[in-house]
Amino acid sequence: MQAIVFDDFGGPEVLVAREVASPAARPDDLLVRNASIGVNRADISHRKGAYGRAYFGDSDIMGLEIAGTVVEVGSQVRGFAVGDRVMGIVGGGAYAELSRIDHRMAMHVPAGLSLHDAGAVAEVFVTAHEALFHLARLQAGESVLIHAAAGGVGSAAVQLAHAAGARVFATTGGDKREAVRGFGADEVIDYRSEDFHAVVAGKTDGQGADVVIDFIGAPYLERNVRSLAVGGRMVVVGLLGGAQGAALPIDLLLYRHLQIFGTVMKSRPPEVKQAMVQRFAQRWLGALGSGAIRPVIDSTYPLADAAAAHRRMETGESVGKILLQPAPAAA
């Protein structure tokens, strides 16, 4: 099968298409012929050497999410059959024509969703659901501030929060404001020209937001905490702005009874990721099928052009997910 590999860490140009052996399905696995593959920032970190030459459990080929058709079912699998349309999270091995996925991290693709679009669901929507509802316990009628709202997880988080009946504040670049508003944001803040803390304070009569979902890290920490209401909860999902030099107002943390969580999916044990997938599926698969929530797709590249997909992500100009698409299987 064709897969994307790299012999040395470096820029996008190190990614090359090569023929490799197809994976073998283990007892709990589905073997899937991929129709679309999600590109994630973790893939860029992998390519640059952030994880070393780690073996991620399923493959040493990069990639974390797939959608496609089941071509083989392991002996211990229940609830799936050959020919089923599935999407889900893999522990490596997505950048290929065939991938194996533990069936407990797979979801049936709803009838109303194409296999192409399904490749943009698992990683971002599961992460967004975990942050908003499992950790931050967001409820209808509460307010939430979501940063990097035009990105993959950000656009998913805005949609889920809106669908759950929350008031959504969202930060993005000014050129992406209308797109983010279209995802369901009530108040869109241009992070380049506006102070999000001042906007949230002004729009909430000084009370602040009940929840903050942050992807930026150290540069936003102090203002994030100051933006939280009494009893507020913040979930840190990424570190796009770096991890050093953060100032934490400890007095506000104490006297406002605040809670701060961190979450990352890639390094979690399989059983934790399985539970995360199932929590999302139980609540939201119906909404995906009906179109009440939808994957946001920026662009699609042939699998062999994975380097171009990485370059697109590194521009910071994308809105939503970037996908890879293997060539159709020969008849």
Results as ranks from 00 to 15, higher is better:
L160D: 11
E142M: 04
D117L: 07
D117T: 08
V124R: 02
V126A: 10
A156Y: 00
L160F: 00
A148P: 12
H147M: 03
E130T: 15
V144S: 06
Q139D: 15
A150T: 05
R137H: 15
G151F: 09
A140M: 11
A150W: 01
A120Y: 05
Q159C: 06
L115D: 13
F125P: 09
L115Q: 12
H134W: 13
L160K: 04
V124G: 06
L135D: 13
A140S: 15
A122C: 12
A118V: 03
V158Y: 10
A136R: 02
A120R: 08
G119K: 07
V153A: 12
V126L: 06
V126M: 09
L160I: 03
G154T: 07
L115F: 08
A161F: 02
E142L: 04
T127A: 11
V153T: 14
L138P: 05
Q159A: 04
A149Y: 01
L135N: 07
V124S: 15
A128Q: 10
L115C: 05
H116R: 15
S114W: 08
I146S: 08
G119W: 04
R137T: 13
F133W: 03
V158H: 02
A150Y: 09
V121G: 10
E130R: 15
R137P: 05
G151E: 12
A128M: 07
L160R: 00
A161N: 07
A157W: 03
A150V: 03
A128K: 01
G141R: 08
H129D: 15
V144W: 00
L138W: 05
I146E: 06
E130F: 14
F125Q: 06
E123S: 13
